[in-house]
Structures are given as C-alpha cells and as structure tokens.
C-alpha cells in the first residue's frame, strides 16, 4: 500500500511536470506576445516589460527559470492583469467554479447511477426506453442551448429563479442543473449497460436462487460490481467539472475559472494559464488515485500496483 502510494506520487508529479512544460512551451511558441498591444510599442519598452515579467532570453532560459520559480511554489504574476498574482487570480475565480462543479458532480453521480439502475431493472419496458431516449437527448443538446432555454422557462416565464448572478442558493440551481445534465445522462447510460452485464452473471443467478427479490439482489450484490466502470468515469469527470465551464459561467453571468483557459491563451498570458493547468492536473491525478483506492475497496480481488 505504501509503495503504491509512493509510486503514484512520483508518476503524478511527472504528469504535472509534463503538462506544465507542454503548456508553457507551446504557449510561448505561439505567434504574438503578451505585450503586443502596449501603447508605447518601442523595442525598449518591450524589452523592459519582458525582463520585468521574466520572459526575456531564449525559450529554454525562460522555461528553466519558470520551473525554478514553480519549485519555490511561486506561480508568478499575470502579464495581462498587472497587479494580480496567479495565486490571487485562482483564489478569486476558483471558489465559484468548485462550488458549482461540486454540486453538478453530486447530481451527475447520484441521479445518473439511480436512473441507470432503474432503466436496467426495467429492461425493454417503456421506463427503460424513456430513460435512455431522455439520456440521448440530454447528451445531444449542447449547454449553450439548454442554458438559455432553462432561463427562458424558469426565470423569465415562471419567475421562480434568478436569471443569473451569484450569491444565494437559488442562484446555484439553474447553472448546476445545466452543467450536470449531459453527465447525468452519460453516467446513466454507463450504469445501465454495466448493470445489464452483471445481471446476466452466475453469482446473481445464485442470489436469486437463494430467495432474494430482484431489488435485494441488485442492492446487495450487483451494484457493487456494476458501479466499477462508472467510478472510472467519475474520476476525470470530477476534475473536469470542478475547474469550471466557460459556457455555463458566461450564460449565467458567473465569475468563475472556466474562462481562464480560453482568455489566457487569447491574451498570451502564460502564467495564469499554467496555473490553471496545474490545478486541473492536480485534481485529475488526485481523483484518479481516489478511483483506484475505491476500486480496491469495492472489489477485494483487485490489488493495487502502479
């Protein structure tokens, strides 16, 4: 167990290192620089700015000096929002995205698993059919259509919920439902297919033979096995949801981390971009580790080795 954790720690650090390096190098190689729109566009001003933000010298020098700063846990400052350090930007933008993504994740995992179970246990009935068509519809309609649609119905027409913004609990409902909808559908489909496979297996026939009702057999024996593929999917999903969605945040007018990736590339603002990538990767490797640990808890036959 200890060696497993240690090896995972090393490989996680490698993934993080690789992702940051790739992001930094690719962004710095793109045409156009962060100071192109300076009003005093003379070469000396450019040079001074580059030196101030430690973007002078060859690409390799910039890269190694950035890595050295990262090793000292210094994420540096934004070249676009001059008075802000990357840590401050993340500290301001992440909480909203974490909250929203967290709610969406809980919705996706619980509702998805429940829906998938119901569909599988009523296989080839109208219940199953309706759940699966509904799931496909939810996957097919992009969030920038569902978002305005939900606003039109619940905010403008029924006036139950606010149009957008941030603050009270009522502000959270529409964006988190909008964010979660396609993933509820993915999880439901995954859970249904996986449970259908398990329901055919021998140990479930034994469970039925010893007198358990179908619901008891599923609850006590089948779910534990059938949920494994869903758990695998949920790991990366958590990282994806928690780092924010640009579309949902812009539709509902929320200041979150979702736009950080796109805006930073547009502005060639390399340090906040790398900061966001670090957060995403850290969440990703963390949740993948949680997935592996959950696996060994759910299925005792699985041994941990990295």
């Amino acid at each position: 167990m200890l060696t497993f954790l240690l090896r995972r720690l090393i490989s996680s650090a490698l993934v993080l290192f690789f992702a940051v390096s790739l992001t930094f190098l690719l962004t710095r190689m793109l045409p156009g620089g962060p100071f192109d729109r300076e009003k005093t566009g003379s070469a000396r001003v450019q040079e001074a700015l580059q030196e101030k933000y430690k973007l002078n010298g060859t690409l390799w020098q910039q890269y190694t000096s950035y890595l050295a700063d990262l090793a000292r846990l210094d994420l540096r400052v934004s070249t676009k929002y001059r008075d802000w350090s990357v840590a401050e930007i993340l500290g301001q933008k992440l909480p909203a995205s974490l909250k929203l993504g967290g709610i969406a994740f809980v919705l996706a995992s619980t509702l998805g698993v429940l829906l998938g179970m119901i569909a599988a246990m009523h296989r080839d009935t109208p219940v199953d059919w309706a759940a699966m068509v509904g799931a496909l519809v939810a996957i097919s309609i992009p969030t920038f259509i569902t978002g305005p649609f939900l606003i039109a119905i619940f905010a403008l027409w029924l006036r139950w919920l606010p149009v957008g913004g941030w603050g009270s609990v009522s502000h959270l409902i529409l964006p988190s439902v909008c964010l979660a909808a396609p993933y509820i559908a993915y999880v439901a489909r995954l859970m249904r297919n996986s449970l259908l496979d398990v329901l055919r297996s021998d140990f479930l026939r034994t469970a039925r033979a010893k007198g358990l009702t179908e619901t008891q057999a599923v609850a006590r024996h089948a779910v534990k096995v059938a949920i494994l593929p869903v758990v695998t999917y949920l790991g990366p999903l958590a990282a994806h949801l928690l780092t924010g969605s640009m579309v949902v945040e812009s539709v509902f007018n929320i200041s979150g981390a979702g736009s950080l990736f796109v805006n930073s590339i547009q502005n060639r603002d390399v340090f906040p971009l790398c900061g966001a990538v670090i957060v995403y990767c850290a969440l990703l490797v963390f949740f993948n580790l949680v997935v592996d640990l959950l696996y060994s808890l759910l299925d005792k036959r699985i041994r941990l080795h990295a």
Binding site: F18, L22, L30, I265, Y280, C281, V285
Partner: peptide, 22 residues
C-alpha cells in the same frame, strides 16, 4: 496518450487554432 489526456482538450484546440490561423 495518457499524458495527453491530462492536458485539457480546449487548451490544445485553442493553441492549434492560434498557431494555424495566422
């Protein structure tokens, strides 16, 4: 492939667009 999965997709798309567009 595992490593490429660890970088957000939108990042690569944006970087490719920025590189090819010009």
């Amino acid at each position: 492939v595992d490593l490429l999965y660890a970088v957000p997709r939108i990042l690569f798309i944006m970087i490719f667009i920025a590189a090819f567009d010009g």
